[in-house]
Design a protein around this nucleic acid. Structure first.
Lengths: 217, 217
DNA sequence: ATTATTTTTTAGATAAGACTAAAAATGGAA
DNA sequence: TTCCATTTTTAGTCTTATCTAAAAAATAAT
């Protein structure tokens, strides 16, 4: 697998959230910031390699083999993110680009040793689940903060948007995985919230609260 | 810098042992397991980028810029080797290929954080010095084991040949960096040695003893 | 159902990096 | 110094992954 091939497989995997759906040429091209014609080329190549099932004009979907490879790239990406944050003290917003490179390191052994070194984490620093070596994902039951009602207590389990600005907003306010959130008030007009996060009061707009996953306590 | 360009710079750097000598097209091609014509192409490109000074038919030598980049690749390679051995418990003989990939990860921050995480090691697991961020190398005073006389005591500081079979030989006999070696006897005929290494007696051929660096105690 | 619009694919080009085969320069030997 | 063997370079081809522009298919609209 070349780096480009791996990136295409990963993109299909992520676009379908690991489900076995079809992905259009254009959607794929957009995600990889490339042109649809390039995506077509690659899909035909990946079809020849039996990594995807591709039908002209109908999009592509991962084969079992392709899905497995994709899951392992995601596994590597997320394990390296844990390493960067936990061991090298990087911030949430700094790790994505580096992990994007590290995920392509090829070694049968390295991933499993890294996993053990990190104590087999189940989620990455953004709360996204880490597939195991068979590609299985342990689904965590989480809901959006915007669906919580006043007086509820919950724990921050993940974030939806991993936009750089959003990540910086969170780390700047010291909001992190495991933070305990109590909804104090919810404004019916714009659905903004007043919340207590780890003993600090924050005013949170609807956009923020729809991008934070929590687990009710 | 592309990965190929980095590999060429590193190869020149290593072939000249960091010195500022010229390297022939063929020597370079051999080291990179490629053809001289490919090396010529690349040298012309690197010359245009001011990374090497290249004169047709006369070989190439690193520019200050090129030498600095090469030293930083070597730095990364060796730091990652330390990480793999110290933190992930890889054996000496397993780390080279992985470090060969990791050395190309690009991040201004990562290297320095990794360095700190590893407590700023000065040598890699084979005893080779790790250049600092300015490309400077702390020279360690070491001699070859074959030049030691009977009854001398010394400490293993590095190995010369990093051939896979040799590395396996050493790790299998539990001979490692820091091992204390006492020369018990030296056979004048074939210059083989009887030595005590960490309280174990070993018979060592001339080939072995000329590939082990030690520091007299 | 026939056109119009959007999406997708093909065709042809480009750049990086490698290769082979052939030409040119170098350096040593006679 | 002239010739020969070796080294190095050039010229042309290949592959991967990308692009643009144009053609073809699919979808939507009248």
């Amino acid at each position: 697998m070349t780096r480009a091939e791996e990136n295409y497989l990963k993109a299909i995997y992520q676009l379908t959230a690991g489900m076995n759906q079809r992905v259009s040429t254009t959607a794929l091209a957009e995600r990889l910031e490339t042109k649809p014609s390039s995506a077509t080329d690659m899909l035909q190549k990946l079809h020849d390699k039996a990594m995807v099932k591709y039908t002209k004009y109908k999009g592509a979907q991962l084969s079992p083999e392709g899905r497995h490879i994709a899951s392992q790239i995601v596994r590597k990406h997320r394990l390296w993110e844990v390493f960067l944050v936990e061991k090298l003290a990087f911030g949430w917003d700094q790790v994505h680009d580096i992990a994007e490179q590290l995920e392509h390191i090829k070694s049968p052994d390295l991933v499993e040793r890294l996993d053990a070194f990190l104590d087999c984490p189940k989620v990455d620093p953004h709360g996204d689940p880490i597939p195991d070596k068979n590609g299985n994902i342990e689904q965590i039951n989480k809901i959006l903060l915007c669906d919580q009602t006043p007086n509820s207590r919950s724990m921050l389990m993940g974030i939806k948007d991993t936009d750089d600005a959003f990540l910086k907003y969170l780390s700047q306010k010291n909001i992190k995985l495991g933070s305990v959130i109590t909804v104090l008030d919810k404004e019916p007009f714009d659905e903004s919230m007043t919340v207590d996060i780890d003993q600090n009061t924050h005013f949170i707009s609807k956009i923020i609260s729809t991008n934070i996953y929590v687990q009710p306590l």
